[in-house]
Structure formats: structure tokens, C-alpha cells
Amino acid sequence: MIHSMQVLQQVDNKFIACLMSTKTEENGEAGGNLLVLVDQHAAHERVRLEQLIIDSYEKQLPQGSGRKKLLSSTISPPLEVTVTEEQRRLLWCYHKNLEDLGLGIIFPDTSDSLVLVGKVPLCFVEREASELRRGRSTVAKSIVEEFIREQVELLQTTGGIQGTLPLTVQKVLASQACHGAIKFNDGLSLEECYRLIEALSWCQLPFQCAHGRPSILPLADIDHLEQEKQIKPNLAKLRKMAQAWRLFGKAEGCDSRQSLQASMPPCEPP
């Protein structure tokens, strides 16, 4: 459907007007019957998010085990995170699996309610650097604590590490995708519109942005509008019909008067 979308033009430096087909017999040619507006920010945000997700994993070797591992970065000094004894036990039991999620945890013998985080997903470090460049306060520890809570809750409810991208990581990547995406009021050439729509067509979830909002807004079915198009009246034909009715009316009036006169008896002189 989106692969055959026809780009028309940018609208108000915010949207890209396109035609797409909703018919099942789509033949792959550009065009279609549905006029849509593509939110340029939401579309680019989706493209960036899916690329960031791909780039967040280590490259798979042909002879590898097939396990996907998030890229991680060492932090020094390690972050101190307070946990309960039950949470510490769960983290210890699954610390090897957590390494696949980019989380490296050290368990000091000095405390049963403390863990040291020496490695975190690479995107956490990038987010921290971005916040500091903007003059904002550090966010690394709060993100790591949220990440650990998320994994502990999953371990408590499912009894194992999930193979999907952790929600905390996805939220950080979504923020990165948003900050680097095309903004409203950014002018795009027709070629740039083409490239953006083509990139969007290869996304797994092209119809929503990184935060779940819709990226494509349907406006009108062109075929439906053409079916409802009113036929222009034939004025020449209407004039002839009006003249005919006028003549018919006069003739009918004359016949009525003649019939009335014929039916009346003649007047006798007094």
C-alpha cells in the first residue's frame, strides 16, 4: 500500500500530500484513490526510531549464536543502586541474561541492599551526554533505576528475561528519534519528500510515530468524490422544454375557452 504511494507536494511546511491505493487489486504502480496527508515530523521520527533500534544491537556474525545483544558502554565510577534482598537475588540469578540487555551489574559483599552498575545500554550514555549538552541535570541514574525496576518486575511476573526490546530502552530511543527528526515548518524539496516517503514505506510500523501517534491522515476517497460529482444541467435543453410548456399551456387554454363557449346555450333576445 505505502510502497506505491504517489507524492504530490509538501503542504504548509508540515505535511506531505500523497495518493495511496486502498484497493486489493493494487498493481504496484504509483498513485491510488485515497488522498492522505503524511505528518513529516511523525514520519521521520518513525524512520529514525526503527533505524536507531537496529543500530542499538551488536552486529550478528554469520556463525554466531543468534542471540541479540544490546550495545553497552562502561561507566566509571559505577552507579550505586539500592535494591531489596529479593530484587538483589533475582538480579544475581539472571545477571548473565541481563548482560544481553547491556546491563552489567556488580554485587558487592559489603551490602545486601546495594548493587553497582558498571555497564549500561549505549543509548543511556548518549541520552546523558545530550542532556548535559543542553545544560540540564543528569538523568543517567534515574534511567538505570527505572530499567532495573522494569526487569525485576518482568522476572517476578514471567520468571525470565523477555526477548523484546525493553520499554525503558525504547523510550530513550524514541526521545532521540524525536529530537533529531524533521520539524514542522521545515521546508522540503520534492526529492526530499520522495526519499522520506520511501523510507517510511520500509518501516514495520509506518502508520504511527515513535510515541504512538498517527503519522498518516486520510482526507478523501477520490473515486467516491467522482461518483458524487453532479452533472451540469443542459441549459439549451431546459430552454426548449420551457418554451414547449409555454406553448402547450397557451394551446390548452384556447381549447378550454372554445369548449366552454360551445357548451353554453345561445342567448335569446328579450
Rank of each mutant, 00 (worst) to 15 (best):
K96N: 13
L71Q: 14
A236G: 14
I143H: 08
E99N: 14
E192S: 13
N97V: 01
K69L: 04
E198L: 04
C267L: 11
S130G: 07
L188E: 04
E146F: 00
S201N: 09
C267F: 08
S142D: 14
Q176L: 12
V117K: 06
H41M: 04
S142H: 00
K250V: 10
T158R: 14
V152A: 06
E150M: 01
G249S: 15
A17M: 13
R195E: 07
L49K: 07
A251I: 08
L122T: 08
M20P: 04
S73Y: 06
S73G: 03
V83T: 02
S76N: 14
L219M: 14
L8D: 04
I143C: 03
L19G: 00
V152P: 07
T74F: 02
L225Q: 13
M5Y: 00
S215R: 05
Q87Y: 09
A181L: 05
S201Y: 13
T138I: 00
G118I: 00
S215H: 10
Q87S: 15
E99K: 15
S215V: 01
E58T: 01
L219P: 11
K232H: 06
P214A: 02
V115F: 08
P62H: 11
K59S: 11
Q60N: 02
I54L: 14
Q151P: 00
D255A: 14
D55A: 14
L34R: 11
R257K: 10
L19T: 02
G159T: 05
P206R: 05
L217F: 15
A129F: 02
D12G: 02
P77R: 09
A244Y: 14
K69V: 04
E226S: 07
F15D: 03
Y194N: 15
V7W: 01
P62R: 08
K23F: 07
I2D: 00
L61N: 08
E45K: 03
E150P: 01
S73C: 08
V117R: 10
L90P: 05
G104V: 01
R46V: 10
H224T: 05
G187F: 10
K14W: 00
P121G: 12
C209A: 09
C93V: 03
R46A: 14
L173F: 04
E99A: 15
S56N: 10
V47F: 12
A242V: 02
F207V: 02
S137W: 04
R88D: 11
R67W: 09
H179G: 00
V36C: 15
G28I: 14
C267T: 09
V7S: 05
C203V: 06
L90F: 07
I216W: 11
R89P: 00
Y194A: 05
Q204F: 04
L247W: 11
C123E: 08
G104T: 01
C267D: 06
R213F: 01
